[in-house]
Amino acid sequence: MSISRRPSTVLAVRALLLLGLSAVPALAQDTAQPASQPVGQPAFAPQPVTYASAADAAAAAQKFADEARRTYPRGSANIDQALWTQAAAAAEAAVLAEPGNADYLKLRAQIYTEVGFWRQAEVTWAAYFKVVPAVPGSRDAQQAGLAQYNLGYSAYVRNQPDLAARYFAECLNFDPQSAQCAGWAARTALEGGDYARAQTLYGQAIALTPNDKTLVYFRGLAQKAADYGPVATGAFSRAYADLDAGRKDQALAGFQAAARSAPNFIEAWRQAGKLALEIGNAQAALEAYQGVIALPGADATDKFNLALAQEGAQYGLDAVRIFRAAYGKYTAGDRTAAENGFQQATAQNPNYAKAWAWLGRTRYEAKNYAGAAEAYGRAVALDPNDKSSAYYLRLAQQGK
């Protein structure tokens, strides 16, 4: 970008800027991740800067910015870094001297955008567009849209959905081809109960990124949302965002709340069950899959997971998973690995009768009758009604 050099009197400037809240790490997989920056950053207050002219100040701002890009790791730009602080202060000095200079206004806005100082980026792009009207979809408008996106995400995580929706809508005004803003605008519409708008916006986002399965998933949810109601739908969407952000306990609570609010919400039950199994909460998984099985649409995977949860609630999910892996080895013909797995399952939970029974079987088939008798004996002691184990226990004791 060329910076015009215009003479001016000596400038002595103190640029005092209040830092706006910026976005925290991302939630949903249906959009690009917002830039990471802590909320509640202290005020940015550069030291006084003196330049001979506005043009000199702008040139210094460009010089500091270029040096910052060479000095700091790629993607780490932050207003607290000394060179970026100097770049911003110099840009402020240039604009203060010549408030109507479009080049200086743009340079300042670009610096704040690059360092992720989103509130100031919003303000400075607005100042630039008063001089040079925004062209939707242009490079400048896209950068202004990025600031709106990050401010929208920050509002979303602060549970200010109306404010977030306004930011995402403004992002789309600047950048109609932004799939991330269309996706988040759709999400806020969905959580706000405006299901028709949510479907339209999800359709727009999908047209921009047709391979995004999460967008397709949520468009389907928007189409069914009226059957579940805004409370359940909002809780589900928030839970999904928590899951994407790694807040698994919060996500589980959200999916559970959605399912309990709308017991016909099969996906809420299913997501709660999958997540509960993942984090090792067998009782929560059992409740969730019981909710799934009670509804039309339950499939073989749901039934499998229900059985896993039932057994896991009794013996512990770790023991059950070890047992099932060993059973898979057995059916694949790897009896040695199967025996080791069954033995690990019994060590994980010594009261796991079925694991003892299968340990007995693998030993019996290997003609390890003493070992088989030991394992079958434990199985029968734990489950006196296990007639098969009792039968093979007698054979193993007889060595045949």
Rank of each mutant, 00 (worst) to 15 (best):
residue 186 A to T: 04
residue 22 S to H: 01
residue 356 W to C: 03
residue 322 I to A: 15
residue 271 Q to S: 14
residue 281 N to C: 02
residue 79 I to S: 07
residue 308 L to M: 14
residue 59 A to M: 03
residue 191 E to L: 12
residue 332 A to Q: 13
residue 274 K to Q: 15
residue 388 S to Q: 10
residue 315 Y to D: 06
residue 260 R to K: 09
residue 297 G to V: 07
residue 353 A to V: 04
residue 280 G to A: 09
residue 329 K to V: 06
residue 280 G to S: 08
residue 143 Q to W: 07
residue 119 R to I: 12
residue 140 D to G: 06
residue 165 A to F: 01
residue 103 D to Y: 08
residue 173 N to Q: 15
residue 75 G to D: 08
residue 31 T to L: 11
residue 200 T to H: 07
residue 216 V to Y: 09
residue 225 A to G: 04
residue 335 R to G: 01
residue 395 L to V: 05
residue 304 F to H: 15
residue 56 D to I: 13
residue 147 A to C: 13
residue 180 Q to W: 07
residue 293 I to W: 02
residue 149 Y to F: 11
residue 29 Q to G: 14
residue 195 Y to Q: 04
residue 389 S to C: 06
residue 89 A to C: 03
residue 63 K to C: 03
residue 340 N to L: 13
residue 35 A to S: 12
residue 309 A to P: 06
residue 180 Q to V: 06
residue 222 A to V: 04
residue 394 R to T: 14
residue 288 A to E: 12
residue 95 V to F: 01
residue 11 L to Q: 09
residue 357 A to S: 11
residue 305 N to M: 08
residue 277 L to A: 05
residue 196 A to V: 13
residue 283 Q to K: 06
residue 383 D to K: 15
residue 168 F to A: 05
residue 110 Q to R: 10
residue 136 P to N: 07
residue 44 F to C: 11
residue 349 N to A: 03
residue 81 Q to C: 03
residue 239 A to D: 07
residue 239 A to R: 03
residue 192 G to V: 02
residue 180 Q to I: 07
residue 327 Y to M: 14
residue 94 A to I: 02
residue 97 A to W: 00
residue 342 F to E: 15
residue 35 A to H: 07
residue 44 F to R: 12
residue 296 P to S: 13
residue 8 S to F: 09
residue 34 P to F: 12
residue 95 V to D: 05
residue 127 A to K: 11
residue 74 R to K: 15
residue 204 Q to M: 05
residue 294 A to V: 07
residue 148 Q to D: 15
residue 265 F to N: 05
residue 271 Q to C: 03
residue 60 A to W: 01
residue 225 A to K: 02
residue 132 V to H: 07
residue 83 L to R: 14
residue 396 A to K: 04
residue 235 A to V: 13
residue 181 C to D: 00
residue 192 G to D: 02
residue 127 A to W: 03
residue 23 A to D: 11
residue 241 A to S: 14
residue 174 F to A: 05
residue 183 G to S: 14
residue 281 N to M: 13
residue 54 A to D: 10
residue 309 A to N: 02
residue 192 G to K: 12
residue 163 L to G: 03
residue 315 Y to R: 12
residue 306 L to K: 04
residue 379 A to Q: 10
residue 183 G to P: 04
residue 304 F to R: 14
residue 241 A to M: 13
residue 384 P to Q: 00
residue 396 A to V: 06
residue 85 T to S: 15
residue 8 S to P: 01
residue 309 A to C: 04
residue 15 A to T: 10
residue 226 A to I: 12
residue 143 Q to D: 15
residue 246 G to H: 13
residue 10 V to E: 13
residue 387 K to P: 06
residue 255 F to R: 00
residue 393 L to S: 09
residue 322 I to V: 11
residue 256 Q to P: 02
